[in-house]
Nucleic acid binder design. Structure first.
Lengths: 109, 109
DNA sequence: CTTATTAATCGTAATATTGCGATATACTTA
DNA sequence: TAAGTATATCGCAATATTACGATTAATAAG
């Protein structure tokens, strides 16, 4: 198959999975880290920063953009990317709530 | 291709991606949530709980087990699964450190 | 207008993931 | 020993992902 049966799961479970998948590739992790490090827009140096071909980076940027985690502004022939603060915070809440379950299972077999 | 070029990225970036990928499928999210909800071992009711076939669940459990996030104890014909507390905490630290970057980019274009 | 620069899109090949039927394994119980 | 129960593994088909060369689109510079 290769086809996820999303209808078997709750909206939240699917939401968590979609967000997590965004970070499930090191190139997208590196893009996000660079955007945080620069702490402002990145205009075009992502291909040099990360060692992948330009179409590949463009594709990863598109996925992050489709999720709303980053946004791009056209500036001449360049495009400036930055973190979308609101959506990043919303994502962070969803993921951390999932991760922050308390572990009390002292009665584990 | 379809082959991630891990050598282009740092160990931390690859580590984050590997952890995130574990949560990149709603079935694995559901498994983890159920383990937290029950708050003890789950012995065999995961197939009933989640609506996928037994080999499919077994495969997802294997991936979580390989990452060390869960552990299984054989109990007769059943296998009891629970969260591996230490490894879960380690994973949580890695992911939340990544997510917890401050966003100060007021000078965004 | 022509050329250069930058990024997106198209098309495609290689690899990975998902899901499950069939089967194997291991233990329990009669 | 034989039959039942629970889980893992095998093998395969369908789909998804990754990567990049070639091309396109859009603006900038001369």
């Amino acid at each position: 198959m290769g086809l996820v049966k999303t209808e078997k799961f709750s909206d939240l479970q699917n939401q968590i999975a979609v967000y997590a998948k965004a970070f499930g590739h090191p190139a997208r992790v590196a893009i996000i880290q660079h955007l945080f490090k620069i702490d402002t827009c990145v205009c075009g140096d992502l291909v040099a920063e990360i060692g992948l071909a330009q179409p590949t980076i463009s594709q990863h940027l598109k996925e992050l953009k489709n999720l709303g985690l980053i946004q791009g502004t056209i500036d001449g022939t360049k495009v400036c990317y930055c973190i979308n603060k609101d959506n990043w915070t919303a994502m962070k809440t969803v993921i951390t709530t999932f991760l922050d379950n308390d572990i009390n299972n002292t009665t584990c077999c």
